[in-house]
Design a protein around this nucleic acid. Structure first.
Length: 307
DNA sequence: CGCCAGGCTAGCG
DNA sequence: CGCTAGCATGGC
């Protein structure tokens, strides 16, 4: 077994592992403390989280400011990459802490990082995310792994890798509808068929953010919002701001001058306001408001409470 | 029972 | 182009 500890001195801006893994950015990690998947609202404490990345089992847990890991391979570099541990949070957030909402969110969840999920898993997870509660997305992705993913044994336990494009491309719509995917079922299969011919997905990963977002919408079930999620949570375009219902309401209330009818206009305005790391700002605000509103409440109620 | 959820697509004008 | 009806399913 390989293992290691990533010290807090090498984590600029600290770490909040639970917020990072349970804030609806990634749906790859299982929490093995009995709460199973995650987002129960209960504290992750020092529980282990596990996932398979690039064919290796990775287990991580946070002890104090440090990150402890175990794997069947040497994966410290992989962990640093996929958990965004190389991002200098204080530097990234510095410019925007003058804003009271950003400051409140950052104070509460300081150490939350933006993940860089494997491309295909991210694409499918967010295709499934439309009109879905976050907890349910976790459950669906977990079901998908256990039903169609490769099984890997590690230290006496079994783990399931996220299914490959070719696997999902071979399914019938009914297979996914039975699992509760609803109208998203054909989107997942169509997109898997496109991506299996292009296993490395390189033509969907571009240097320029706006070109990248536009390219991604060629995939079935991927519109502007889902494309932004892929840009931010997989590719690492940190200026991408996924405009979901929560963020749209927030912008309308707190940053009305950035609010426009069209997605692209609002996107440009908010990126202009928050700068090259606008995606980090968005992710903090999303996580903060969702918890302040009691997971299912609405933005207006928080706003009233804060007055 | 009715309403809504990290939206998207097709098909209008 | 911009706009909207319809879409599956589960939880409250």
């Amino acid at each position: 077994m390989n293992s290691g500890i990533i010290s807090d001195s090498s984590l600029s801006g600290g770490l909040d592992l639970q917020a990072t893994l349970e804030s609806g950015q990634t749906y790859l990690w299982d929490r093995d403390d009995g709460n199973d998947y995650v987002d129960s609202g209960l504290s992750g404490g020092t529980s282990w989280y596990s996932a398979i990345i690039d064919g290796n089992v990775i287990r991580v847990r946070q002890i104090g400011g440090k990150l402890e890991w175990e794997s069947n391979a040497e994966v410290e570099g992989t962990i640093r990459r996929v958990l965004g541990l190389n991002d200098d949070l204080n530097e990234i957030m510095k410019e925007n802490l003058k804003d009271p909402l950003v400051d409140a969110a950052y104070t509460k969840y300081k150490g939350m990082r933006i993940v860089r999920d494997p491309f295909f898993a991210c694409v499918v997870s967010f295709i499934c995310s439309s009109q879905m509660r976050v907890e349910r997305i976790f459950r669906m992705q977990q079901k998908l792994r256990r039903e169609y993913g490769e099984k890997i044994r590690f230290e006496g336990k079994e783990y399931y890798e996220y299914p490959k494009p070719s696997k999902l491309a071979s399914l019938k719509e009914s297979n996914l509808r039975k699992m509760g995917f609803g109208y998203r079922a054909p989107y997942v299969i169509e997109t898997a068929k496109i991506l299996e011919k292009n296993e490395m997905c390189t033509s969907y990963i571009l240097e320029d953010y706006e070109q990248n977002r536009s390219k991604l919408t060629e995939l079935k079930g991927v519109g502007e919002k889902v494309a932004d999620c892929i840009c931010l949570f997989s590719i690492g375009h940190l200026e991408a701001v996924p405009l979901d219902t929560w963020i749209r309401s927030t912008i309308k209330i707190h940053y009305p001058s950035c609010y426009h009818k069209s997605y692209q206009d609002t996107s440009k305005s908010i990126r202009n306001k928050f700068g090259p790391y606008a995606g980090y700002v968005q992710t903090y605000i999303f996580h903060y408001l969702r918890h302040e509103a009691g997971m299912t409440g609405n933005i207006e109620s928080i706003d009233k409470r804060n007055k």
